[in-house]
Design a protein around this nucleic acid. Structure first.
Lengths: 231, 231
DNA sequence: GTACGAGGTGTACGGCGTACACCTGCTGCG
DNA sequence: CGCAGCAGGTGTACGCCGTACACCTCGTAC
């Protein structure tokens, strides 16, 4: 179409074009059919050309995810905590809605991507600014769990596993803390068993039961008052 | 070890041995490193031998999942609904806990496996027996969402997508309904827009907001009363 | 003893991610 | 102008994957 000089004229590739095409392709043919080769073909280019713009397929997936998560529209400043959280979560949902593969990719990432961290940090910030204690905010974030997007878990998780990525070096942790202050605050209060300000470890079982009981409480209340979706 | 007659003596393969070895292997080396070839090697057998016991890799994954989900211990009969749900969900959690790959595999399945359906049916049954209306049960199951195990969504979902499996033939649907009566009851009440008893379609957005608001209500209550995890 | 079928084997194919060496054409500098 | 440098596209190749298909080898039933 837009050839210009001679043999290879079509507007040169770049990371954004690659990611955009990948998202569109995944939307079209499904995430499991998305391959580097297929994507290259779609872009009219040889497979290896992609590697000049993304390090490997995993980074491609990370980039695709961040493209979508980064498009989440933040609520207007000054909104009360409840509406702000509600709006942000619903915005996240609508951002993900058109890309059925996104949730699955999210789940499969070993570490949260920058946009995901930024979103998490923002939601934590809403609770903290709304007067929630670090403690309650922590539990509440766990309870929101996958409803946030699906990625709250294992932010600074130390639990082992065959596929556990290597621990981040201290310098990287410090940079993370600077960039995502609310995440860091929660982590400081919850994940270190010794030497932390709060001193409680993060007990996954407790978090799970906390969220479960919160829901069961709600169910019970609705049930007792004869709630119906009609009104 | 247990060779007996001559060349090929080791107790012959069967589906259960294959699935068991696959689970153990996935636990050991991670789900993404699990390949038919690697599994065959672990069993001292040529890769193609596995195909005499599982149709393909997808069915292998389904079988592995069902092995784990099938091990969920049901609560004692006669338990009140709240304790029963609580116990069942916690039992599901503990069944999945030792297999970090299970949740991810669950998410990736196009259709729920039999054990997953059975579990879902059982939980629905608890609510119904506890006096919950079909309507409330439906919403409540959505709210439980991934906390049930991660598979409540898209049971009879008609939403399209590139990887959508072909619709089940009516005969298969009827068999499903017979085997999982509570699931069928919910489906009848919710997924058909016309000709159903209740007549409301299943509005995913509504379900999402229902669950979100239930949680936000809970958060608000805890926040107001100055709740702390200490007690 | 012979036919049969369940279950293990061997070979082969097409697709995957990607390492590595190469080429090409634009840029800036003498 | 000439030419070095380099960003970015190319071609080839390797080792892995899932699995189709034809084959062989037993234990068993008749």
């Amino acid at each position: 179409m837009a050839q210009q000089t001679g043999t290879t004229g079509r507007t040169p590739l770049n990371r954004d074009r690659v990611l955009g095409a990948a998202v569109a392709l995944a939307d079209g043919i499904g995430i499991e059919a998305l391959s580097m080769r297929r994507l290259a073909q779609e872009l009219g280019v040889v497979p290896m050309a992609l590697y000049k713009h993304v390090a490997n397929k995993d980074q491609l997936l990370d980039g695709m995810l961040d493209l979508i998560v980064g498009a989440i529209v933040p609520p207007a400043p000054g909104t009360d905590w409840r509406s702000a959280v509600r709006q942000r979560v619903l915005a996240a949902r609508s951002a993900l809605l058109g890309h059925p593969w996104a949730a699955q990719v999210l789940q499969s990432r070993a570490r949260p991507t920058p946009a995901v961290l930024a979103h998490t940090d923002a939601v934590i910030g809403i609770f903290r600014s709304g007067g929630f204690s670090v403690d309650l905010t922590h539990h509440v974030m766990h309870a929101l769990g996958s409803r946030l997007l699906g990625f709250t878990q294992e932010l600074f998780d130390d639990s082992a596993g065959p596929a556990t990525p290597p621990a981040l070096p201290p310098a990287a942790l410090r940079e993370l803390a600077a960039r995502y202050p609310y995440v860091a605050e929660l982590a400081a209060g919850a994940t270190h068993d010794q030497g932390s300000v709060v001193g409680r470890g993060c007990d996954d079982q407790f978090e799970f039961e906390f969220a479960l009981d919160l829901l069961l409480d709600g169910f019970d209340r609705l049930h007792r008052q004869g709630w119906t979706s009609g009104g």
